[in-house]
């Protein structure tokens, strides 16, 4: 059962799951030198499809291509779809050049969500590295909307440099919450950064949570996630209570194209969010 009060929505737009639905760009904004956010609404009006934190959409740029991007907005808001991504590939670069009023194609939402509902009654530790904060932001929104269901809530976020810190204003707001522990660290910094310098993995040892009653949600580069889970386990968090979000090549998003296979899993439909104990065997193998 979901905590969300919204009714589950069935997409009636098309029976063919490969057909994108046109969305219009309402707002475009750079979060850092290479990362940007788009706010989108469906062309012709109406709500965006209900989504769960951690799910993604296949986003299409006219004539260029289609890629999976996690949803970064508030799952309680149905008036606006938010995607944050880095302009690093052909499609995302083309996407970054689109202006307000232009259109994108969107299919989704797809994939398994963060265990925000199963985590009720537990402490929450969210560990994000780099752009990995984007797929975790909806989980933060949902958890904060139902704050009373959870114990301590800790957000540990690591970025490359202060200029790469995502959602800076949001982080500052969250930091002001008295019932939320937010720690931000950067790998390298100049002198005008007053915050912490060091790896996000080093924040875990002192983060205030009860390891025996914690749900950890981790997203970032795969190596960062592996090291994070090691630190979590050092603290005594059971690997059944650690979740990671994986990235693989995806062409369809619905388990038909075969590209995203990771061992026995299809990252698009069995993931992208996985219980760590479920995938650890393959995560430590090379080139799976």
């Amino acid at each position: 059962m979901l905590l969300s009060a919204e009714p589950a929505v069935t997409t009636t737009f098309s029976s063919d799951p490969m057909i994108p639905r046109p969305y219009e760009i309402q707002r475009a904004k750079w979060d850092s030198s290479d990362t940007f956010s788009l706010e989108l609404t469906p062309v012709g009006g109406g709500d965006i499809p209900a989504f769960e934190p951690g799910q993604f959409n296949m986003v299409y740029v006219y004539g260029v291509g289609e890629i999976p991007i996690s949803i970064s907005g508030d799952p309680a808001r149905r008036d606006m779809l938010i995607h944050t991504t880095r302009a690093v590939g052909t499609v995302t670069r083309a996407m970054s050049e689109l202006k307000v009023g232009m259109m994108l194609g969107v299919r989704g939402p797809y994939g398994a969500p963060w265990p925000v509902d199963e985590a009720r009654g537990k402490d929450i530790v969210i560990v994000a590295g780099g752009i990995g904060l984007a797929p975790l932001r909806p989980a933060m929104y949902r958890i904060l909307a139902y704050r009373e269901h959870y114990g301590r809530v800790v957000l540990l976020y690591g970025a490359r440099t202060p200029a790469d810190v995502l959602y800076r204003k949001q982080l500052e707001q969250w930091r002001a919450h008295f019932d939320l522990d937010v720690f931000v660290t950067v790998d390298r910094a100049t002198n005008n950064w007053r915050g912490s310098i060091g790896l996000v993995t080093q924040l875990i040892v002192r983060a205030p949570f009860d390891p025996l009653n914690t749900m950890a949600m981790v997203c970032g580069p795969e190596v960062m996630m592996r090291f994070t889970t090691l630190e979590m386990e050092k603290r005594g968090v059971n690997s059944d209570n650690i979740y990671v979000s994986l990235e693989r090549n995806m062409k369809c998003g619905i388990g038909l194209c075969g590209h995203c296979q990771f061992g026995r899993e299809f990252v698009c439909k069995d993931g992208p969010v996985f219980r760590y104990s479920q995938v650890r065997h393959f995560l430590t193998k090379w080139e799976v």
Partner: peptide
Amino acid sequence: RLWQAQRSNGGFTVQA
């Protein structure tokens, strides 16, 4: 072919 799209003033329409 999965679908085709026609461009029209800043946007496009998809035809299955």
